[in-house]
Design a binder for these strands. Structure first.
Lengths: 140, 140
DNA sequence: GATGGTTCCTCCAGTCACTGTAGGAGCAAG
DNA sequence: CTTGCTCCTACAGTGACTGGAGGAACCATC
């Protein structure tokens, strides 16, 4: 309510680029704010909170559809939170799978690098490790 | 060399969709293969290996530019492998960072879910956890 | 040899979540 | 009044694909 913010100020306060804010407006994540005489967007503290919420959720890897759902839920605080729970749960599963995959990859990269004799490619395990795995074919 | 493969067979053997194979051809990751009378692409075992190499590298999160560099290196086995080593090294750093970030996220998601009272959104910690963090503003 | 089903061809548009650019207008300070 | 910054819209580009249209080719069967 207090002190209108320009898109640049909102950008700095929430840590989201102005172009991205306009993109979020078009995508329906951020509302169309009131405008000044000169047609500039005017934001308030509520917008800072909403945008920071979006940024945080995006950083946590929630996709825009999920963020939209979460925002709709938080806009209707009388609603059932089971959906929010489910979104977070789905996300947790995906995150665990990614961690497992990346941990395996880390081991593989370390092995690759430690075995690389710093010689020619013919002796290089970086290439070979990838090529080796190429033979294992099917399941990921 | 033995037994020509159709794009469909290559697709099945390497676990990469035919459309994606054509896309890789356009992007220069896969070579333009010989064609049949009827203008169909003809692949061999070498293509299966190359495509599997690409698939594996992509699954490990190497971006196309890196895959291209690795492929060029493996195409010239007399070259220096320092570059391959460097690509893998850069990647290892990024992978470690990703794992750290995802592990933090996992903890946060678990906390969110365990605290969700399965009631209305007003009491829901999933939303609140996101909103809470929204206040923490600046650095990510 | 006609038929039908599958696979393949090219070309092009769409996806996601932005990012960047062009070309202009508004605004505040010197 | 001019300089320089921020902001406006509109649109094109990114990466890494994915999907569809519309047509040709191949294969098996009748």
């Amino acid at each position: 309510m207090r002190g209108d913010l320009s898109i640049g100020e909102l950008s700095r306060q929430a840590g989201v680029k102005a172009t991205t804010i306009r993109f979020y407006e078009g995508a329906g994540l951020m509302p169309k704010p009131p405008r000044s005489e000169g047609d500039r967007r005017l934001y308030d503290e509520g917008h800072v909170r909403r945008l920071s919420f979006i940024r945080h959720a995006r950083e946590l890897g929630f996709e825009m559809a999920d963020v939209r759902a979460l925002l709709e839920l938080s806009d209707r605080p009388e609603g059932d939170c089971g959906l929010a729970d489910e979104i977070a749960g789905r996300h947790l599963t995906a995150v665990e799978a990614k961690i497992a995959k990346l941990t395996a990859l880390k081991g593989e990269l370390e092995r690759m690098i430690s075995q690389c004799s710093h010689g020619v490619v013919a002796d290089c395990r970086v290439i070979e490790a990838l090529a080796d795995h190429a033979h294992c074919g099917g399941e990921h």
